[in-house]
Design a protein around this nucleic acid. Structure first.
Length: 218
DNA sequence: GCGACAG
DNA sequence: ATCTTGTCGC
């Protein structure tokens, strides 16, 4: 499944161009009961990448299962090519879950990407599961600052296209950059992310995954 | 040519 | 992402 994984940035960009049309940006998901969150961290000294995947109940966002995966970091960090660095380990973690989640929230962009294939879209495509990109900062696109109330959002535009939403998940904090990953439309993505982010700035599944991977990275 | 640039 | 303490504010 990870055979012929790109080695160079040029090769990676070519693969993105070849896969971009396979990403589905319309709702193709069933009832959401189990929501997963995925995040990765690095241990530079050991040259390792740690990825965590958790599953929480969509209803109360309580942790149900958490797994970890670790691999040697094999691709450099290049803006726009993050998936080639994190996806292998993230997919490893997802495969360790006892069941397939109904939805996956990924710490990174979905289609709000130069070639419409951010980490969330790439992982969703390879695992064939509905995903949403939930990033803390912008990669591409222009936008107007969303209102101060929780739930306020403004479109993220890139090359005349709406590629995501800048969403205020909590008053007094910086907004999140939400974009369809795979098999989830933008409006549904916004709704789902809000439901998964009832209290803090970050979505609960991602917070749980972030905490877990961070504990095992040092 | 000059900035911008997920994690 | 990672390197890093205290500190201001709700």
């Amino acid at each position: 499944m990870t055979e012929s994984w790109p080695t160079s940035p040029e090769e990676a960009r070519r693969l993105q161009e070849r896969l971009r049309d396979q990403v589905v940006t319309e709702d193709r998901l069933g009832p959401v009961r189990a929501v997963a969150g995925a995040d990765a961290h690095y241990a530079p000294v050991q040259g390792l990448t740690w990825a965590a995947a958790v599953i929480a109940t969509f209803e109360n966002l309580e942790l149900e299962e958490s797994v970890l995966a670790c691999q040697r970091t094999a691709f450099p960090y290049v803006s726009g090519l993050l998936s080639f660095r994190e996806a292998p380990t993230m997919l490893d973690a997802l495969a360790r879950l006892s069941r397939t989640p109904d939805l996956l929230l990924v710490d990174g962009q979905g289609i709000a990407h130069p070639r419409r294939l951010g980490l969330a879209s790439h992982v969703g495509l390879l695992a064939d599961i509905p995903t949403i990109g939930v990033a803390k900062t912008r990669l591409v696109g222009r936008y107007e600052e969303p209102g101060p109330a929780r739930g306020a959002w403004s479109p993220l535009l890139h090359r005349r296209e709406v590629v995501g939403a800048v969403l205020r998940t909590r008053p007094g904090t910086r907004p999140l950059f939400v974009s369809p990953g795979h098999r989830v439309g933008l409006s549904t993505a916004i709704d789902l992310v809000l439901r998964c982010t009832p209290r803090f700035r970050l979505s609960e599944p991602i917070r749980l995954a972030d905490r877990l991977s961070r504990e095992h990275a040092p």
